[in-house]
Write a protein that binds this DNA or RNA. Sequence first.
DNA 1: ACAAGCATGTAATTTGTTACATGATTAT
DNA 2: ATAATCATGTAACAAATTACATGCTTGT
Lengths: 188, 188
Amino acid sequence: MSLPHALLTALLEKPSSGSELTRRFDRSIGYFWSATHQQIYRELGKLERAGLIRTLPGGAPTRGQKKEYEVLPEGRAELVRWVDQREDPKVARDPLPLRLRAAGVVGLGGLVDELRRHRDLHRARLAEYREFDRRDYADEPSTQQERVQRLVLRGGIDVEAGWISWLTRAVEELSGEAPEEDTAGTDP
Amino acid sequence: MSLPHALLTALLEKPSSGSELTRRFDRSIGYFWSATHQQIYRELGKLERAGLIRTLPGGAPTRGQKKEYEVLPEGRAELVRWVDQREDPKVARDPLPLRLRAAGVVGLGGLVDELRRHRDLHRARLAEYREFDRRDYADEPSTQQERVQRLVLRGGIDVEAGWISWLTRAVEELSGEAPEEDTAGTDP
DNA sequence: ACAAGCATGTAATTTGTTACATGATTAT
DNA sequence: ATAATCATGTAACAAATTACATGCTTGT
């Protein structure tokens, strides 16, 4: 049940329309959650019916028009409750290691190339995150909100770095490639 | 669509019943996928109807009795196809960083304690994985299957280490705690 | 023979994915 | 004006979660 709370958070940071939220989910929010625009529209409807958010007064009610939402006190209260609850970590869920394990039984096929491809995609994502980090938090963060947002971005960076280190080792071991030099770079 | 393929892999490694598969998903397979017994039973039924697996001859057909499955040639072929396809990496999906971001807006509440709790759970899981690594792969792996299984386990270890490093930093920064010494240990 | 636990299964709900449809806005 | 794009929305489906039900097996 994280999507509604992710939406509440995003709307508290800045009232937005569905399409704006979709774009924001591809960016900062998306380090640890993704959602299609359909999920977002459906969930916005639910949240509105539940009285947790409302459309900004003056929003046009017809189709195809922008429709901005803001969070109501009940929505904020629900978010507080969610932040404060206990919730155990879930196991990561990723098909790639699963495919590798399957390859252990039925043969590698072209999987090593696929591992290289993923390694490169993760490297690109890591570079992008580091760029965000440099650009958006150049000077010491002032507000608690900024400090926390930077921490979350750091989480994304750590996770990407972890994948790269694993994929690099896997490719080396399965292809007999020579180890490369420090491609992930050092921590800034 | 990873669950059916995870099941095919597990069954190729060793024909099993639903409850055995459930247990195996809590162990080795579970480094990167989880499933409840209900998901597993339903999916086994589907795979059987699709002609990808069958019950071992001699299995009792009544309820409450063990029912062992094995993979048919069509199932193996499907697995080969899956291993060899292209599939882009998905973004990680974890509520904890999301909750942290929400806390940036509505206040931390008891979240720092929750971060500590998660850090400790990840430490415990990491210790467990390292124990598996030591126990199950003490000597150099001989078969391709063993090499690959060990690589997957290493993936689990890398991911856990990444979480621990992030959570440790987050707790330090949000609580003003003094940095600790090397709790994750060094790579064996 | 009875309780406790195990193995399988059904049902209902929620969440996520994919495909498609329609009204508004913008650029040429 | 009209094509391309944007924003919102509907529909159908697949996957995952939660709760509950029923028959076997084992130990006492």
